[in-house]
Write a protein that binds this DNA or RNA. Sequence first.
DNA 1: AATTTCATGTAATTCGTTACATGATTCC
DNA 2: GGAATCATGTAACGAATTACATGAAATT
Lengths: 218, 218
Amino acid sequence: MSRRSGILEFAVLGLLRESPMHGYELRKRLNTSLGVFRAFSYGSLYPCLKTLVQQGWLAEEPGRSPDDPRATALSNRRAKIVYRLTADGKERFEELLGQTGPDAWEDEHFGVRFAFFGQTSRDVRMRVLEGRRSRLEERLAKMRASMARTREKLDAYTLELQRHGMESVEREVRWLNELIESEREGRDHRDPPHHGDQRPPDGAPERPRPGPPDDTTT
Amino acid sequence: MSRRSGILEFAVLGLLRESPMHGYELRKRLNTSLGVFRAFSYGSLYPCLKTLVQQGWLAEEPGRSPDDPRATALSNRRAKIVYRLTADGKERFEELLGQTGPDAWEDEHFGVRFAFFGQTSRDVRMRVLEGRRSRLEERLAKMRASMARTREKLDAYTLELQRHGMESVEREVRWLNELIESEREGRDHRDPPHHGDQRPPDGAPERPRPGPPDDTTT
DNA sequence: AATTTCATGTAATTCGTTACATGATTCC
DNA sequence: GGAATCATGTAACGAATTACATGAAATT
């Protein structure tokens, strides 16, 4: 019954933390802002919202779209249900933000975790980035071993597929290296090679816990 | 009931087409040769094998590992179950190979389709590659539109995430361009118009001529 | 007036995993 | 003879989708 997906829950709480929204709008943001990696359908979203309300993390408000000036006064024409984060919900989200288990850097989770780095403390950001990197390096090692073993036996297409796959992983590792370097230097990654201008994240809560990164991933 | 996964079924038929195998070995090949993209567990594989046998596409043989010289004679010590492709199974696989619906170039399917390009006729290869490319270009267009709309409102991390995502897609498009170009140039004269006879797995398959002029890696 | 887009939801189904249960074979 | 790996399977669960069902609001 409990349609708690982990990642969907996390994303919903995170988006509602910024501002209240109704389901339809929430879904659009889910599939654009964060949606390069994942797409959710209503069949997932609405049940999830329901359970989050039951948990006490969200509150429902009959309402109109918040940027609709017309409907402020005389409308009892409820149709949209606007969800907002409760105090408990905020607490819950921050608890999730602080988690740095292996889950945080698996393929499915990493993207959405990164998307909310603006809300994440620096040491957690570091742990997640480094965890992700060592996860990928592990994977690279396996791929290299596998390619060494089977080099001769595979046809050109399979080989090309593996080569391209490895290159993709290597590319992500380089990306992570740049990000980690930026975090370390304390600058926000605005200078790395040649991307357009970026604004620093605004409300990043800086907790100065200099914990050594938990390197033993797996 | 029917644990037919589409992609798992396809991969199993394709691997067994090359040589008979038992489940355990099959799973390893699934997760190395093709496994950059997907990993399957026994809980998926064995039920799938069962239904493929029921369909008449696979046949079970009590057997030993085919490269174990000791056990050739006196062993009734069955433990492994070696699966081989039946005639119907071959037909089925070739039917699947020929399909060029939109399914063939979605994220999940494309990898495994590509892995068996060595068995695929040229025109189908072309359609799959071009289908994949236009799918990605579609996605790029959406991402660009979305970024144009929301540029100002997002924090640096979200933006960086989107930028990296877009770059990944662009990179895959360039890869596809090279592959399509190679296919176009490398017209092999020995191209069978419709399926029927396939080369033995040892015979040199056509080379995709990946031609990597950029060696940004290694 | 009709069509599109907005908006919310439920039921059945798909695709796959994890945890469990069992046992043979090989290596030390 | 004990551990690691090989080998096969099942039951319970998980996460998300698709298809369905409904209806209000905006646009043409």
